[in-house]
Design a protein around this nucleic acid. Structure first.
Lengths: 238, 238
DNA sequence: GCGTCATTTTGGTACGACTAAACATGGCAG
DNA sequence: CTGCCATGTTTAGTCGTACCAAAATGACGC
């Protein structure tokens, strides 16, 4: 009810954004519930609807609100995925620049090679078991390219889960999402599926034998091969 | 001049966002120049100023425009840094959650350990020379904590530059920015500076000797130590 | 030429109105 | 009583206008 004026910030919307995000974080607006209607916020903060809408839009771009058209914005405590999706639009521009896809994929190689090394050194019994069953799912799907794609993704996803760091699975989802436009237009051949499966086996063996070097080598070989396939399909112009 | 209606998209602002971002990417609005005034865009697209403002705000949050209050928005072709800064607000929330800082720092350890391994295997003569001079700057600044902080950052930044992948330096800037709140409130002691310098030397030696394992070990030791210092300062509640 | 001041431009905010979609209600037919 | 549909209500999306203040612009005097 109090005027938020005199908050000495160039833009009124900014102070509203601060107050709202604070109320969200403090739980005053609990997760999953819709925000009060714009007209209520308007009188609560003593501002016009213009400013309310600006603030709401800003918060939704930050991932603290989920705004569907014609609906009340839903309060969302942001997770690591929200951070990733905040970059999405920018990234999509960057991927159109020459070299953008390769730069992104190279970071994936970097990260994933570090992951398999760490897995080879620290993977627990259940991690290994999960990898093993993912491998079997791979093997069972070599002839069904659509399904193989899913099991392929699942195998790599496991690598990102082993360190128990919630940033990493989010990062994997990001890679999958951003590289999907290239990947999904590639031809899916059973031979390639089989080669990928065998590459996965090699990675798994490296982890199983607690041999970081072997695991990393296998993974780099696997991803380099994938990149070559991309280049063959799109003609290097990335 | 044509009506953008009938574009079959729930929100008018979204179509304007698309059109504008396309015009920015195609160079019709060249980088560095201000966008046309809102009132012009309004009639150009046949929409109200409300929508124009919404679109402009959206684009500026995406990093395609740089909007200062009371100024015309400046067109910016987004780079990798723009992607990072798009996450900034979300990340700042995540870092307040328990474990957020540690999760982020762990990814840094992961990435940076992969970087030093790669450096040990692939660093060129000039990379090594750059590292060497960064080390000397370290050594010269051990007694001036403020300056040592800068040279410390510069040393690590070099590691991110070696693979020639523009994503990585941006990532380093992100780490520095996001972890700065914790780092900058830590006491700076010459002993610590000296210890950090020696850790850098160990990393450099590993790279110089083309010994990835040694380099990685030294780096992990270095960063783990840094994390311990953070914990001592803030009492583990991260 | 250069600084100063008045004018115009332009973004920031407010208010009011209307539309259409989503939601809530209640009545009607089975 | 139950399920479905018509109706009214809520609410976000959009538009138009108006006003203010800061910035950009240009005129003027020095």
């Amino acid at each position: 009810m109090q005027d938020i004026n005199e908050s000495r910030s160039g833009r009124a919307a900014d102070t509203v954004v601060r107050q709202l995000s604070q109320k969200i974080q403090s739980g005053e607006y609990s997760d999953g519930t819709p925000l009060p209607p714009e007209r209520l916020l308007m009188e609560e903060f003593g501002i016009s609807r213009t400013v309310v809408r600006e603030a709401v839009q800003s918060l939704s771009k930050q991932g603290l609100l989920e705004a569907r058209p014609r609906h009340r914005p839903i309060v969302r405590k942001p997770g690591y995925d929200a951070a990733i999706s905040a970059m999405e639009s920018v990234v999509s521009h960057l991927l159109n620049n020459s070299g953008g896809v390769k730069n992104l994929f190279d970071t994936r190689i970097l990260v994933e090679s570090a992951l398999v090394r760490q897995a080879a050194q620290q993977a627990q019994r259940d991690d290994i078991a999960a990898l093993k069953s993912a491998l079997e799912a791979n093997k069972a799907a070599v002839d069904d390219s659509e399904r193989f794609y899913l099991t392929d993704r699942a195998f790599h996803a496991l690598l990102y889960e082993i360190p128990q760091n919630p940033v990493l699975p989010a990062l994997h989802r990001a890679y999958v999402t951003w590289l999907a436009p290239q990947w999904s237009r590639m031809p899916r051949l059973p031979e390639r599926n089989r080669a990928n499966y065998e590459a996965h086996v090699a990675i798994f063996d490296g982890i199983l034998m607690r041999d970081p070097d072997a695991a990393e080598t296998a993974l780099r070989c696997h991803l380099d091969q994938a990149w070559e396939q991309v280049c063959e399909t799109f003609g290097d112009g990335l």
